[in-house]
Amino acid sequence: MSDPTETSGASHSEQILEASRRNNTELLLQIKSDLNNDQMKLSQLINSTKEIITNNTPLHLACHLGNWEFIDIVLDIEGVEIDPKNRAGETPLHLAVKYANDEPDHGYYVVDNLLDAGSDPRILDSYKLKPINYVKDNANLTELLEGAEYAISMEGQGLQETQEGDDGEESDGPSDSESE
């Protein structure tokens, strides 16, 4: 019997798509090892690898299927794009929300972790819908996404306030007290 991680000549791109579909962390870690644990090369591979028809990245696929172990490793790789868009304009967060409709508890966990990693819940897909628009009968998930949108809007407000001087005009940069 052959080894399930054997790839018989498949490219790293083909391998990483397969790893994302099957939640195969052993294969993902083998690819990482093949790339000499170079985070930049690994993030470039993940960011540039896409399915031909859907334009889904490995992160899209894993979120669509709820493959948490794969997602968890990918979220820890510096330089991985967390909000790439597929052909339908969907981010991995859009697909995780759709997954959560079928698997509410696990899906909530995946969505929560994507948000913690910096995924933007305000991004519109090709149908002009945000991830929250795909939530079906899940008040907790709706509340989580609304809270994330609110937090982002408050961060923007806080940033705007810190860029304004005492007289309400925008400053040219940080004051001496802010830069220490």
Rank of each mutant, 00 (worst) to 15 (best):
I73T: 09
L59V: 01
K98C: 06
N138C: 06
Y99I: 05
L124A: 10
T57Y: 08
A100Y: 08
G147V: 04
H106V: 08
V74P: 00
I123K: 14
E143I: 02
P58N: 08
R122Y: 10
K50P: 00
T54C: 01
A62Y: 10
N37R: 11
L35R: 07
D72Y: 09
E143M: 07
L59G: 01
L129T: 00
D137S: 15
A139D: 15
L35M: 14
D125F: 12
G147F: 01
A139P: 02
I152Y: 04
S126K: 13
N140D: 15
I152V: 07
L124V: 11
S153A: 09
E143V: 02
K128Q: 12
I82L: 15
Y134H: 12
M154F: 02
I46D: 02
S153W: 02
E103Q: 13
W68I: 01
F70Q: 11
V135N: 05
P121R: 10
K41S: 14
V80G: 02
D102N: 14
E78R: 11
N113G: 04
E149I: 14
D38H: 08
D102M: 11
N47M: 01
A148F: 04
D38Y: 12
E69G: 01
A100M: 08
I132G: 00
Y109Q: 13
N47P: 00
P104D: 06
S119W: 07
G107V: 05
N37D: 15
L144M: 11
V110T: 08
T91L: 12
V80I: 06
L59K: 03
Y108H: 15
L95I: 06
K130L: 06
C63K: 09
H64G: 05
L144R: 04
A139Q: 15
K128C: 09
N133R: 04
N37F: 15
L35C: 07
Y109T: 10
A139R: 13
D116I: 12
H60K: 02
F70G: 03
W68G: 03
A117R: 12
I71C: 05
P58F: 12
P121I: 07
Y108T: 05
P84T: 05
L145A: 10
A151D: 13
K98Q: 15
A151R: 08
K98R: 14
L115M: 10
K128H: 09
